[in-house]
């Protein structure tokens, strides 16, 4: 039976891991390669590196970061943040990324999804969706969560799948950094609407939140950052807890 994946995410700025609360108030959390080395032995199933560097100079260091992280792990590695073209994607893939995650660029130029899927296969293309509740709907935000894209998250996920995306990385902006639990309603709505895996993100604070998102949320994978960075929750304990709740995991 296919295991539910537990994914560790590193938000990287200027080559260093940082973690924000609701996309702000960044605080320093360490060296990406050091963290990756720890994840590789702790039983994390996959690693995501999200580059939140705003400057062009900083972005040039991303390939170096990806290379350093890839050198430490024999796990799937996804890289996102500021990937706007085939050549941006090629740079991080050649540096050792197995998948690229597109966000703003996918909405602005959805043909990029198809171009990358044709070149590297759908399995290499993640479309990241940052969503926020608007009454009973989920609205898509872009530009690091600053701009309302005037799109519905469920509808956009379906289109991304049709255009060749292999996975959806779905972040609840309302929950991001709050440690109050994943947005299961959001995750379930998107997961039921598509036939590709959905990675839930935003709100992980404790083991119960992972149980909830894998059951009520119908998530195929769940991503967290800070709870793994600061070793607040052991990956092994988390997976034992999931297994004890009947959720298939890799132990």
């Amino acid at each position: 039976m296919l295991s539910k994946r537990v994914i560790a995410c590193m938000d990287v700025r200027d080559g260093q891991v940082v973690k924000g609360v609701q996309f702000q108030d960044l605080r320093h959390a360490g060296d990406p390669a050091e963290l990756a080395k720890r994840y590789n032995v702790e039983g994390i199933d996959e690693v995501v590196v999200l580059d939140i560097t705003a400057t062009l100079e900083g972005r040039r260091t991303l390939a170096d970061t990806v290379r350093a992280v890839a050198a430490e792990i024999f796990l799937p590695l996804a890289v996102g943040g500021g990937i706007r073209s085939e050549s941006d994607a090629a740079t991080v893939i050649e540096a050792g990324a197995d998948k690229v995650s597109l966000n703003t660029a996918a909405l602005k130029q959805p043909e990029l999804i198809t171009a990358l899927a044709n070149r590297y296969g759908s399995q290499a293309v993640i479309v990241a969706i940052d969503a926020k509740r608007h009454d009973d709907r989920f609205a898509v935000y872009v530009r690091s969560g600053s701009t309302d894209a005037a799109r519905d998250a469920v509808e956009w996920a379906r289109e991304a799948e049709a255009r060749g995306a292999g996975e959806i990385l779905l972040t609840s902006m309302d929950r991001d950094g709050t440690k109050s639990g994943f947005d299961c309603a959001l995750t379930a709505a998107v997961s039921r609407a598509v036939n590709i895996p959905v990675i839930a993100s935003g709100g992980a604070g404790g083991v119960e939140h992972f149980v909830d998102v894998f059951t009520d949320g119908c998530a195929d994978a769940a991503l967290a950052a800070s709870i793994f960075h600061y070793a607040e929750s052991s990956v092994h304990e988390l997976k034992v807890h999931l297994r004890d709740h009947g959720i298939p995991v890799r132990l």
Partner: peptide
């Protein structure tokens, strides 16, 4: 909920 592609860790 059995999705294709089959992505992830399996036995």
């Amino acid at each position: 909920g059995v999705k294709v592609p089959h992505v992830g860790w399996n036995a």
